[in-house]
Structures are given as structure tokens and as C-alpha cells.
Write a protein that binds this DNA or RNA. Structure first.
Lengths: 335, 335
DNA sequence: CTGAAAGCGCTTACAG
DNA sequence: CTGAAAGCGCTTACAG
């Protein structure tokens, strides 16, 4: 049997209260007993039972992470930042793939509640009323990543999508493109603001918006392919495309390749996120970078602060984006 | 305050034992009291505290998952299979990024032990003696994915790397390539058997092995680039390359692109894994598929069976690989 | 069919 | 500086 606190107390000739105090770096024991107890602990290979500890302390040192899709390169990079920072702070993470399903999300929320996670990180999904209700019922702090809610006042960590999209589009325009298509997301969360930024940039630069050139995907690779195929008949009406995610941008490049079109010779493309696939693409993808790792880190630090201060309010953070120039955008200026 | 089992017992006029029985679908209560209790539970919005439950039942319904790198496309796809299957079986997963570090791995193993996970999934890492010792000490079942150990008898789920590599290499040979370079992994786990399969295929087909054409990476994108650059001066001495991972294959394609070399015109390449990046590559990558999702699923099912049967022994599974033909290999036959 | 009680392995007042 | 005791929220013999 694995040793418990009782075993070490007995062997060290002290009460379990004393062992507990030593374990938790509290006051109330002599240096001598501390040494003795520590020695017994090592001797026995004793490890405190976090479950028992959690039951009384009401802290499990674990955080629930909800994502719509673990497989996306967006999630991969985010997860890395979250994991790193959680581990640094002695927290573990339970990761949940919601698959964008409402019932799955709710289901997970309840499970996470039963498992008494100390806090929640919720990424890239709209906060439905029912989610908000059950989160509130759970009574634990939440931080949103790459999403926010006007209705529900939850703190978030994100980039200003509208502004970032504005810059991405402007970048294309500054490179001499005046007919720009868009592969947009189909949601209100990030799809819409990114599209608005795109439209605004076109307008501000005195170009005319062509709604035909706007196409809607779901941020994934396949949808990027599909969108580009939709755009194909209109090939002569644009010279560049702005994709609302790297995965979609790479999908577009892939569909172009299938149709013997080359990027950036036949058209330029700029992505969004700066995930690993952006580097991996042929040609390497010019994109607007979201600092995914830092965002994960910031989110974890915020929840932990909320947990430890027992204050479920936190400020939100707008992180900086940045345009990473690689080889998928051709300048039309010098030609 | 959140309702406890006591609250529902009181309100339903029964003992907590009865509530517990109903909660756990045991025998020993009338249909009438069951209904009443269930109603109270709903009324109060009662959810059992999994921590308290875990303390007495010794089951937490959570599994620890250790991976060297969550960001890799290999891990992404695997994680998806693991998550899906865990959730189907009402288990949660704590994911741990070991970063290939021994101390981190050990650290995590201990934390997972303290948190009383019911089982462990350990992927893509060598089992060092100290790992094995602490795993044994924890007394919970483990399943290995894409790794195994001759010294320590732990059940695993993997593909036969040697055989798969043999087939990948043979595939190139059958397509008319007789000078084949390799971008190998630098470890004994999967790197070595894949290289052996490669060598064997070359030998069996009566070709001559050229050690100069073997180069060593660490399975990641960057190392694939680096390896291809090493191979560049030898460009005329091979027509195809076998890369031990898709990430490295894509890295190689990327480095080729930088050097104005085209795949598959200037050389052919076959990868290993069939992760999402293989589909995303330009050209789409021909590769030997590991059924990553199924492997994750099989692993979870095995641990759960071990957990529930309280028998820490399980059979290992060799999963089937498959060559997925896409566009990165050119046939030299018809030319 | 049902309840009282012990106990899981800890932490935390309380008392000395 | 230290210990006895209560209690966290459950499950599980045991007894009826």
C-alpha cells in the first residue's frame, strides 16, 4: 500500500497535523521535527494525495481547457503556451475538444465542474447563454481566448481582429493590389470583425468593394480549398486574397496548385494566425501573427490570479499582432 | 453554496446512502423513492463531487497523457483520437508536454500520481529506468503509443516501423528510383527501425546503400530543412528521399523550394505519419500512414480495460500502415 | 428496501 | 511548538 500521511506521522512520532504543516510550509514546528519528518517522507517515498487535499482545500490545481478543435494548428500552438505556463505555476490542464458542439461543450462544462477544476480557459467559441449560466453556477473563474462576448462580461485575451484584418488588407493594397478577394470565416466571433476590417481597409484606400469576391469558410484547411475553388471562375477579377486563417490560406494555395495556379505569381495571399503551417507552406506564407503562445500564457496567468485572489474579475488584454512577411505576396509596385 | 448529497437526502427524506445508490445505479431502493430523489436532484441542480467520490472509490476517471511535443502534427492527430475515445468512455485527460526532458517527465509522472489518475498513456518517448520505476510505484496501468521497450514489459500500440519503412522505400524503388537518400530520426525508438527498414529494402532490391545519403533529424520541420540542405551538395547522387516523418519531409520540400528545386521534378519524396501537414503540403505528400486516431483510440480502450479489470497487463497491438499516394513521388519508369 | 456509521487522506480551527 | 478532533462529500459494508 502506498504510504499516507498517517504512516509518516506514526513513523516520525508526530501527529498528522504536524506533518501537514510541514508539507504545506506553514508555521508551527521546530527545525528538528521538520528534519525528522522530511527524512521519513523521503524514506517512505510519501506523496500527498492531491484528491484528499483537494476535498478539503477546495483547490485541485487543475484548469479546464475547452477548444473547438485540438487538431487545428491554431490550437496546437495555443495549447503549448497554455501548458507551459500552467505547469510553471504547478497547475495541470484537462483538455476538452468541443468539436463546436453545444451539447458537448455543456457536457464538458459539467464534468469539469464535477471534477472541481479551479478555473476555465475557453477558446475560440461563442459564449451561449447556457454556457454562461453553467459557468456562473460552477462559480469558478473563466478566461476567454480569441473570443469575447458583449452580453456576458467575461475577461478575454485576444487580438483586435478588425484592426489586424485592416492591416493585412492594407498590406496587400500597399503592395499594389487593388482587387482583393477574401476567404472569410462564417462566424460572428472572428469571421465578422476580420471581414469588417477588410472592408474598411478597401474603403479607406478608395477602392471599391466587390461582394462577389467574399467567400466563407470555417477556418479549416478544407474550407480554404473550397473557397478558392469558388473564386476560381472570377480569377481575373482579383490579384490577391486575404484569408482569415492560415489553414484556409494554405488550403487556398493547395487548391490553386491543383489548378495549376501559382502563388504568388498568379495571385498573392496573406493569412492570419502565424501558426506552424504558415512556415511550412510552399511558398512560406505571409501572414498576420497572433502571439498564440503569449496569449496562452497570459490567459493562464489571469485565471490563476483570479483563482488565488478569489476574485473572478480580471482585466482583458488586447495583444499585439504583427505582419510576418514571407513569400506569398508579390509586390505589384515595381512591375 | 452548491448542494451536496446531504442536501438532496434531507430534502427527499432519505439517507445519503440511498441517494448514493441511486446516483450509482445500484440496487436497493423502491421505484418511488428513486423518482423522488431524482426530482430533488434536478430541482437542486445537484452534481456529485468527483473529488469526494474519487477519494473513496479510488477512481478519478481521468487519464494522464504524456507527449514530447503537443505542437507536432503527429501529436495533434493522436490527441484527437485519445480525447474522443476517452470522452466516449467518460474519462478526462490531463495532457502533459514533456519536451523530451527527463526531469519534466518524472515531474509529471509524480504529479499525475498525486492527482491519482487511473491510467497513463505515454507516447513517442523512450522508457528510461527511472520512468519505469516511478510508474511501477504509482501502481497504475500504462499504455505506450508509438514506442516500446525491450527491457520493460509495457503494452504498446504502434506500427511496425521497420516494415513500414521497408515498404516506403520499396515504393520508391518500384517507381524506378535507385538512388535514395534518407532523412532519418536520431533516436533508437523509431528512427533506428525506420532506417533499418530502409536499408533492408535497398539491399533486398539489389541496390547499393550509400551511407553518405543518410542524414539525421529530430522529426521536426526545421530539422527536415537542415537535412535537405546537407543533402544538397549530393544532389546528383539521389533521385528520391525517404523522410522518417511528414514534418521533416515538408521541411525538406521547403528547403528545396528555397533552393529553387521542385518536388517531384527535381527529386521525389515520401514521408511518414500521414498527418494533416501531408495533405496540406505543396505538392501533397505521398506518405506512409499511421492510423493515428485509431491508435489513440486503441490505446485508450486498452488502458480503460486494464483499469476496470484491475489487471495491469494487456496485449500490444501492431496497427496497419498504408501508403497514401499523393503527388510528391514521380515515377521514373515511363520516362 | 433503507439507514447509521465508518472511513477515504487530507487541512484547519481550537486548545494547550 | 504540538496534538486531538472535526470535517470536506462521498461510498460501502453491516444490520435490520
Amino acid at each position: 500500500m502506498k504510504p499516507t500521511i498517517k504512516d509518516v506521522a506514526q513513523k516520525a512520532n508526530v501527529s498528522i497535523a504536524t506533518v501537514s504543516r510541514i508539507l504545506n510550509n506553514q508555521l508551527g514546528y521546530s527545525e528538528k521535527t521538520k528534519e525528522r519528518v522530511l527524512e521519513v517522507i523521503k524514506e517512505l517515498g510519501f506523496r500527498p494525495n492531491a484528491i484528499a487535499r483537494g476535498l478539503v482545500s477546495k483547490r485541485t490545481k487543475t484548469i479546464g481547457v475547452l477548444l473547438p478543435n485540438v487538431t487545428s494548428s491554431f490550437a496546437s500552438k495555443l495549447l503549448k503556451g497554455i501548458e507551459e505556463s500552467a505547469h510553471e505555476n504547478d497547475y495541470s490542464m484537462i483538455v476538452c475538444n468541443t468539436d463546436h458542439s453545444g451539447s458537448r461543450t455543456l457536457d464538458y462544462l459539467n464534468i469539469l465542474g464535477e471534477k472541481k477544476v479551479d478555473g476555465l480557459v475557453f477558446s475560440s467559441q461563442e459564449i451561449k447563454e447556457e454556457y454562461y449560466e453553467t459557468i456562473t453556477r460552477l462559480g469558478i473563474p473563466v478566461i476567454l481566448i480569441s473570443t469575447m462576448s458583449y452580453r456576458f462580461p467575461l475577461p478575454y485575451v485576444k487580438v483586435d481582429d478588425r484592426q489586424a484584418a485592416y492591416h493585412a488588407t492594407s498590406y496587400l493594397i500597399e503592395n499594389g493590389h487593388d482587387k482583393i478577394a477574401m476567404i472569410s470565416g462564417n462566424d460572428d466571433l472572428t469571421g465578422k470583425p476580420r471581414m469588417e476590417g477588410y472592408k474598411q481597409a478597401i474603403e479607406d484606400h478608395g477602392l471599391t468593394l466587390d461582394e462577389k469576391l467574399i467567400t466563407y469558410g470555417d477556418f479549416d484547411f478544407e474550407s480554404g480549398k473550397k473557397c478558392l475553388k469558388q473564386l476560381l471562375p472570377l480569377k481575373d477579377e482579383f490579384t490577391a486574397v486575404f484569408a482569415a486563417s492560415d489553414d484556409m490560406a494554405v488550403g487556398a494555395i493547395s487548391a490553386a496548385y491543383e489548378n495549376n495556379l501559382k502563388v504568388p505569381d498568379d495571385f498573392s495571399i496573406i493569412g492570419f494566425d502565424n501558426t506552424l503551417v504558415a512556415e511550412m507552406a510552399i511558398p512560406p506564407l505571409t501572414t498576420v501573427a497572433q502571439p498564440l503562445r503569449e496569449m496562452g500564457k497570459a490567459a493562464i496567468e489571469k485565471v490563476i490570479e483570479m483563482i488565488e485572489k478569489e476574485d473572478h474579475h480580471a482585466s482583458s488584454s488586447i495583444m499585439n499582432f504583427q505582419i510576418i512577411e514571407r513569400n506569398s505576396v508579390k509586390s505589384l509596385k515595381s512591375t
